[in-house]
Amino acid sequence: MPALASGAPKPGRLGAPWQAVILLGPALLAYGVFAVLPFLDVIRLSVMRWDGLSPHAAFIGLANFRFIFTEDAVFWTAFGNSVIWTLLSVAIPPAIGFALALGLNQKLRGRNALRAMFYLPVIIAPIAVATMWRWMYDPFFGIVNSLLTDAGLQRLIQDWLGDRRVALYAVFVAYVWQTAGFAMVLFLAGLSNVSPTLLEAARLDGANRAQCFRHVTLPALGSTITVVIVLSLINSFRTFDIVYGMTHGGPAQSTQLLAFWAYTQSMQLHDFGHGSAIAVVLLAVTALVVIPYLRWTQRREDAA
């Protein structure tokens, strides 16, 4: 029975179309104006020359893209760093999260407290994580170098955020600390869907722990693994706060990432054209991941 028709004819009342507008309108308006519009605007700005303030922006075709691809050395540095960052982000925090989830899915004393401890960094503001780790990496009084000294490993002591060969990885360690708990929670949710009766049956048939894991648990986690990998991928493209807070992209651009370089071009160097072109490149890469993923989600939801 069509809901839209049922409310329409009564006088002095809002018709169903109006009710739909009232319910759906405000959210769509906010989303359309403050999320979709900037999204379209960044594409428009990527073919313009504009300083962000003057009333006139000039159309210059693909010159911004030509510039970032051929003349902007920092772009390729940021690109390379972003590739490293993304590969590490997809591999390491999910792997740690997976291991933690497997362990904390067992019946262990105090496992809820343990889960909470691993998860706690996820809810801390990324900018506070950056500040914390900057202090921990302090060359003289920070915990990292102090503990290395105590352990007799003075030769490993570095200026963690000041040396361009190690800075990116030092920032990444802080990122792992912050994000592994997120993957853990998603995997725990996935594990709670693994059928206990199936595991019990496998055990009764004489399967050992490794076999149960390999043939029962792992196949049931297929979709969870996809979700965690895609979310880790997308979150890695979003990385901004932690770089801003720890290194500002330095030293010598060694921790520069694409999202941060887009921001720097636009908001610090007042070159909205170049900044937007970088943003468009990153959005295109994101779309390559997101569109197939959304299709997959949609299919799964239709099946459910």
Partner: peptide, 22 residues
């Protein structure tokens, strides 16, 4: 709904400049 769903995936960190000008 699909248009809204797409929004869960937009990295707004990339849109800071157009957000500012808006």
């Amino acid at each position: 709904f699909l248009a809204i769903l797409f929004g869960t995936m937009i990295p707004f960190q990339v849109l800071l400049a157009p957000l500012f000008s808006l």
